[in-house]
């Protein structure tokens, strides 16, 4: 009995040591070779997504029921349909507004703007979010089977939500522009000055993310629109990101920085649109 007990304590410490070493090794491996472990991620995703889809369906069904009494169910369905339509129309409208603007002022320079207007789009529902509660990542219910690929742009309500980072059989992971490790190359709408839009989860508590690397001489004022720029290699040009406020000099005195209010309400996002055109496919686009 005494021998058995001794073995037990040793083995619990041993398991602990082995697992900690394994974890550290995995961290190093996944840091050095990011793609090596992606099949594992995909497999885990494929296992959980059907269940999460089920829960999402059930919970949205329950919340629909709770939201209003059953005799108004038809109204809810119609409302949902209309909301989706409004979202699509908003996207459409943003494109048109920008196109008109560009046509009036920059006809010669940017005649090919709003490439994503005619691009094929897919609507998808959010089925799970980052377990730590922040809105920096979520999983949608469309994947390879629906033609989703890595680096496709994700929109909602006429604005940029983020980009696809991982794709499984019938799911895909989206990293939003408010995530700390996200940075999007942008430009200001009337003046075309360039900037970098960086995610900042902490500032997002107040509803802002960061805009950095604005030229000191750039003429930028509050409430200017920020769109994705032409020099980005992953984001399609001309997608609205948000509105700029609180412009000030960077502590380095080399450029200016500002806050940006995203157009998308990340907290209450339920469905998104994915543009099926990749930036790298836009050959001949200048």
């Amino acid at each position: 009995m005494g021998r058995v007990k001794k073995n037990f304590t040793i083995s619990s410490k041993m398991i602990f040591t082995v697992l900690v070493i394994l974890c550290v090794a995995l961290i190093i491996v996944s840091y050095l070779f990011a793609d090596l472990l992606s099949p594992v991620k995909t497999a885990v995703g494929n296992f959980f997504v059907p269940m999460q889809k089920g829960i999402a369906t059930v919970s949205s069904g329950i919340s629909d029921k709770l939201r209003i009494f059953s005799d108004k169910q038809d109204l809810i369905e119609e409302n949902d349909r209309l909301t989706e339509e409004i979202n699509e129309l908003k996207t459409e409208m943003q494109i048109l507004i920008h196109q008109e603007y560009e046509l009036t002022w920059y006809r010669d320079l940017y005649e090919n703007d709003s490439v994503y207007q005619n691009a094929e789009k897919v609507a998808a529902r959010i089925i799970s979010r980052n377990p730590n509660g922040s809105c920096d990542m979520f999983v949608i219910d469309k994947g390879e089977e629906d033609g989703i690929k890595r680096d496709m742009n994700v929109l909602a309500g006429g604005g940029l939500v983020g980009i696809i980072t991982d794709v499984g059989k019938n799911w895909a992971k989206v990293r939003t522009i408010i995530a700390d490790d996200s940075s999007v190359s942008g430009r200001f709408q009337p003046t075309s000055d360039t900037c970098i839009v960086k995610g900042n989860l902490r500032r997002m508590d107040d509803g802002y993310i960061d805009v950095e690397m604005i030229n000191l001489n750039a003429e930028v004022y509050d409430n200017y629109e920020v769109l994705t720029s032409y020099i980005s290699d992953k984001y399609l040009p001309g997608i609205l990101i948000g509105y700029v406020t609180n412009i000030q000099k960077d502590p380095s005195e080399l450029n200016k920085r500002a806050y940006l209010t995203p157009v998308v309400d990340f907290e209450h996002l339920e469905a998104v649109l994915i543009v099926k055109t990749l930036r790298e496919d836009l050959e001949g686009f200048e």
Binding site: A25, L26, I27, S30, V40, K41, V44, G45, N130, D181
Partner: peptide, 9 residues
């Protein structure tokens, strides 16, 4: 495997 950037953290 689902939400981490580095596996193991």
């Amino acid at each position: 495997c689902t939400y981490g950037s580095l596996i193991g953290l």
